[in-house]
């Protein structure tokens, strides 16, 4: 099956200068785990995920400790979130985006997601413009 047959035709996205707070609200409303970042032509220039935002909140040493149990309290994250809420998402987005295309087949997309550990992929047209997303559940629900 081709991506065009099962993608979620949702063009929900943010711009590079959208705020982190806006991205959080949009993640909550859209049911997506990551938001494509698009330019003025709608081309995908990055992706900002829940994980990217969480990483921006926790101290850098957390990466080495691999556990949140070392955090003194969530108050520290709340304080940090207030600090970065108005920052543009461009500061925290992943710039090297793995994308799917409408003519890709389901096996290729599943392989990409498994190998890269991704929950969803933006789908782009020939010009690199966003036309939707594929989530893991979009694949699972068709097995």
């Amino acid at each position: 099956m081709k991506v065009r047959d099962f993608l979620r035709r949702d063009l929900t996205a943010v711009e590079a200068d959208s705020s982190v707070l806006h991205a959080i609200k949009l993640l909550e409303n859209s049911g997506l785990s990551a938001l494509p970042v698009v330019d003025e032509e709608g081309r995908v220039v990055g992706i900002v995920s829940e994980r990217d935002i969480i990483r921006a909140l926790v101290p850098e040493y957390m990466d080495m400790l691999h556990s949140a149990s070392f955090l003194p309290s969530l108050d520290r994250l709340t304080k940090r979130l207030k600090e970065i809420a108005a920052h543009p998402v461009a500061r925290y987005m992943t710039k090297e985006v793995v994308v799917a295309r409408l003519e890709d087949n389901d096996l290729h997309v599943a392989d990409l997601m498994l190998r890269k550990g991704l929950k969803q992929l933006p789908v782009v047209d020939e010009q690199g413009r966003l036309v939707g997303v594929v989530r893991r559940i979009d694949l699972l629900s068709r097995l």
Binding site: R9, D10, L11, T12, K25, L26, N29, G132
Partner: peptide, 12 residues
């Protein structure tokens, strides 16, 4: 809308 094949681009 998504289930009917409509592409969506709404503001929340």
């Amino acid at each position: 809308l998504l289930s009917r094949g409509v592409s969506t681009n709404f503001v929340w």
